[in-house]
Simulated scan of single mutants.
Amino acid sequence: MRVLGIETSCDETGVAIYDEKQGIMSHQLYSQVKLHADYGGVVPELASRDHVRKIIPLIKQALLEANCTEKDLDGIAFTKGPGLVGALLVGSSVARSLAYAWDLPAVGVHHMEGHLLAPMLDEPTPEFPFIALLVSGGHSMMVEVQGIGQYTVLGESVDDAAGEAFDKTAKLLGLDYPGGPLLARLAEKGEAGHYNFPRPMTTKPGLDFSFSGLKTFAANTIRESDGSEQTKANIAYAFQEAVVDTLAIKCKRALKQTKLKRLVIAGGVSANKQLRSQLAQMMKSIKGEVFYPRLEFCTDNGAMIAYAGLQRLKANDVEGLSTKAKPRWSLEELSAI
């Protein structure tokens, strides 16, 4: 079985073809970073227009790279939600139109299920059940996963997501957009012991996240600092350390609560080196396993949508002729397969 996957939930146009036996046959990705950089964040209308311009050329390139035509496909998967509604509508309308024209089934995929299953794109793959920490610019979520579609959300962000806090703090430090990776790079030059940032919501029970207060603490610290490059690096170090510690504490708590020893980390923040290192040490200490997607599949991409779509296509979980984008969509609403 072979599926074309289309991802247009935010500011990246991703197209990929995934084959059940051969794996990833092609992978095309266009990032809108330069388009939004002047504004310091994603402008939804500009994002939608750029998806319109890029999506068809990327589909053609993906088919060419995979050396196949529409006749070699068994279905088309697209991101149905959550995300920016205009961006989602571009992907869903193109995918559903092509599916109709090519007489193929269309599969609407939950964006976070795509991230959650992204580690399945490479060996070794995690076995069910496991705990998934999904951390990106728009989401921070802890999920107990018993199988595909069998999700229990144990905790989520009540305000800023981890990736959002990274980007906003980076902006306060004078770094370009998107600032998360740049802040992580700056933190490598920082020194420990200069600042002590809070670890939000770790002293009270529960698995929800809150990074808005941490961002405010960073803003006050930056305002009162001398503004030197080394000071900025020290602040970046302390901020990253606080976020990573918070995520690690919550992961350990979730594993203990569910008595599981398997952890999956996915989403854009899962590429963070410090987070990977600390969670690897933590899982080793409890004799558990931790899994991540390949670095290129941590951020939004078509491959994860194609893979998730293929799993749902096999279960005949497909769209009708009329499909709607779902900018808000709970993981727990998905059907088990």
Rank of each mutant, 00 (worst) to 15 (best):
R2A: 02
V3G: 08
L4P: 04
L4H: 01
E7Y: 07
E7M: 03
D11N: 07
T13M: 06
Y18D: 02
E20H: 12
G23R: 01
S26K: 06
H27G: 03
H27A: 04
Y30S: 15
S31P: 07
K34V: 06
V42T: 09
V43D: 12
E45W: 03
A47M: 01
I55G: 00
K60R: 15
A62I: 01
L64F: 14
A66V: 08
N67L: 12
N67Y: 10
T69S: 10
E70S: 12
D72L: 07
L73I: 06
G75S: 13
G81P: 01
V85W: 12
L89A: 09
G91S: 11
R96E: 05
L98P: 00
Y100I: 14
A106F: 05
G108T: 11
H110M: 08
H110N: 15
E113H: 00
G114C: 09
M120C: 14
T125D: 03
T125Y: 10
P129F: 01
I131C: 06
I131D: 02
L133T: 02
G137R: 04
H139K: 01
S140L: 05
M141N: 04
Q146P: 11
Q146V: 10
G147E: 02
I148Q: 03
I148E: 02
G149I: 04
Q150S: 02
Y151D: 02
L154E: 00
G163N: 09
K168D: 01
T169Y: 04
A170R: 13
A170G: 03
G174E: 14
G179Q: 09
G180L: 05
P181G: 11
P181Q: 12
L183M: 15
E191T: 14
A192K: 11
H194R: 14
N196F: 15
M201P: 07
T202M: 03
K204D: 14
K204G: 10
L207R: 00
L207C: 01
L207Y: 00
S210Q: 05
L214P: 08
F217K: 11
A219S: 15
N220V: 13
S228T: 13
E229F: 10
K232T: 07
A233C: 08
N234F: 15
I235F: 14
A236S: 05
Q240S: 12
Q240E: 15
A242H: 09
V244E: 00
V244R: 08
A248R: 07
K250P: 11
K250V: 06
K252S: 06
Q257K: 00
K261H: 08
K261S: 07
L263N: 01
G267D: 02
S270W: 07
S270K: 03
A271P: 00
Q274C: 12
L275A: 12
L275V: 10
R276K: 07
A280N: 13
A280L: 13
K284M: 13
S285Y: 14
E289G: 07
V290K: 05
F291D: 00
F291V: 01
F291E: 02
Y292R: 12
Y292D: 04
P293Q: 03
R294K: 04
G302W: 11
A303K: 01
A303P: 03
M304P: 06
I305M: 03
G309L: 09
L310K: 13
R312F: 05
K314Q: 15
N316P: 07
E319S: 13
G320H: 12
A325D: 10
P327K: 11
